Simulated scan of single mutants.
Amino acid sequence: MPGNEKCRFICAEYKHRTLNPETEGKAYTDIQIDELEALRLCDFEGMDQEMAAHSMNISRGTLQRILYAARHKVAEALLEGRGIIIAGGNYQVSPGCRCSMKCKKCRKEVMENE
Rank of each mutant, 00 (worst) to 15 (best):
M1D: 09
M1T: 10
P2R: 08
P2M: 10
P2S: 11
G3A: 14
N4Y: 11
E5L: 15
E5D: 11
C7H: 01
C7I: 15
C7W: 00
C7L: 12
F9T: 00
I10A: 09
A12I: 04
A12K: 11
A12E: 10
E13G: 04
Y14T: 14
H16F: 04
H16N: 12
R17K: 11
L19E: 13
N20L: 15
E22W: 03
T23L: 15
T23C: 07
T23D: 14
T23Q: 14
K26F: 05
A27V: 04
A27S: 12
Y28E: 10
Y28C: 04
T29V: 15
T29R: 10
T29K: 07
I31L: 15
I31S: 03
I31V: 07
I33N: 00
I33V: 15
I33P: 02
I33F: 04
E35L: 08
L36Y: 11
A38I: 07
R40G: 10
C42M: 01
C42T: 06
D43F: 05
D43H: 05
E45M: 06
G46S: 04
M47R: 02
Q49R: 13
M51F: 12
M51T: 12
A52F: 08
A53H: 01
M56G: 08
M56W: 06
N57C: 10
I58S: 04
S59Y: 08
R60M: 14
G61D: 14
G61E: 11
T62E: 13
T62H: 09
T62P: 01
Q64E: 08
Q64A: 12
Q64P: 00
Q64R: 11
R65I: 07
I66V: 14
I66N: 09
I66K: 06
L67E: 01
L67F: 12
Y68K: 15
A69D: 11
A70W: 02
H72C: 04
K73S: 06
V74F: 11
A75Q: 09
A75S: 09
E76P: 00
E76D: 15
A77M: 01
L78G: 10
L79E: 15
L79S: 05
E80W: 03
E80M: 09
E80N: 13
G81N: 12
R82D: 06
I84A: 01
I85A: 10
I85Q: 14
I86Q: 03
A87Y: 02
A87L: 12
G88N: 07
G88C: 11
G88A: 10
G88Q: 02
G88L: 06
G89C: 09
N90T: 09
N90G: 02
Y91V: 03
Q92M: 07
V93E: 08
S94A: 15
R98Q: 13
R98F: 13
R98A: 13
C99K: 00
C99E: 07
K102M: 13
K102P: 01
K104R: 12
K105W: 12
K105M: 13
R107D: 06
R107Y: 05
R107K: 14
R107A: 12
R107M: 13
K108G: 04
E109D: 07
M111C: 03
E112N: 11
E112Y: 02
N113E: 10
N113M: 13
